[in-house]
């Protein structure tokens, strides 16, 4: 994947939070915004944003997905970069929107213009801001999980890793079958729960086997799945403490580097 550089260092960006972060992981979104602001970027949060449309798209309900996706096209009138703290949603907007609106010339033009401005969060930090985090905390060992679409469509495994490697006190553990899917896959987890369960079981086992203190990821869909299964295991086995805590990479970075100010 070729790294893309925005022309010059942007002073303003749009933030597309994604429906999962808005409703389930708001702290991750807030931490991402704080980090960007601490780096001197003004962050704009279009109030009318909802969802990129991916859940319906991958489920095969394209009229419905298009109806939702179309509403996101108008949210970003200024030519600023659009930062998305989730690789799969960023991939949807960057790679699938243009062909998704192939039949509608107006929307297609908008989608194409938007596509070039979409940045996954860690990609934006590394390639656009040239962010150099200064670690301010003690030694820890973490493990990085990258979602499949973030890896394939956005190259986020490289940028996420690059950020973690810049933190002096942080050791990044290497899990077995690192690139293997955690089994989330949106509605896949609901349509084929047994297969999805077997996949997340193996993923959690591989992450735990590293002995890392926590799992860090730039994708909240995977986190819901991985952390949800780990917590369920804890509950089954009567553990009070989480055996595998985890958080969004934005929260982790912000904390390691001294918080919002």
């Amino acid at each position: 994947m070729e790294p893309r550089q925005a022309p010059g260092r942007p002073t303003d960006v749009y933030f597309f939070a994604t429906c999962v972060i808005d409703q389930f992981y708001p702290e991750a979104g807030l931490d991402a915004i704080r980090l960007l602001e601490r780096e001197g970027v003004t962050v704009h949060f279009p109030a009318d944003q909802t969802c990129c449309g991916q859940p319906a798209y991958t489920s095969g309900f394209h009229a419905e997905a298009r109806q939702v996706a179309r509403r996101q096209l108008d949210l970003f009138p200024e030519p600023w970069p659009v930062v998305v703290p989730s690789g799969s949603c960023a991939g949807m907007m960057k790679h699938h929107y243009p062909s998704f609106f192939a039949g509608e010339p107006e929307a297609r033009k908008q989608a194409e213009a938007l596509s070039g401005r979409i940045y996954e969060f860690t990609e934006f930090l590394v390639h656009v801001l040239g962010y150099e985090p200064k670690d301010a905390s003690g030694p820890t060992k973490v493990v990085l999980h990258t979602s499949c679409s973030a890896r394939r469509e956005m190259g986020a495994h490289v940028t996420g890793r690059a950020l973690l490697d810049k933190l002096d006190g942080v050791t990044v553990a290497q899990q077995d079958h690192e690139a293997e899917c955690c089994g989330f896959g949106g509605t896949f987890a609901l349509r084929h729960p047994e297969i999805s369960a077997a996949m997340v079981r193996d993923k959690v086992a591989a992450l735990k086997a590293t002995g890392a203190e926590k799992v860090v990821s730039a994708d909240c869909g995977c986190l819901m799945n991985i952390l949800g299964h780990a917590a369920w295991q804890d509950r089954q086995e009567g553990r009070r403490q989480l055996s595998l805590p985890g958080e969004h990479i934005a929260s982790f970075l912000l904390k390691r580097t001294g918080g919002s100010r």
Binding site: A17, I21, D22, Q23, F24, Y25, P26, E27, G29, L30, F45, A47, A189, L190, R191, P193, S196, A197, V200, R201, M224, N225, G228, H229, A231, W232, R235
Partner: peptide
Amino acid sequence: GWTSVRTPLTPAPRRLRDL
């Protein structure tokens, strides 16, 4: 399908837009 091997999905008490 979800909770057979995971804890339930629960929306946060405040959305990002509230925060």
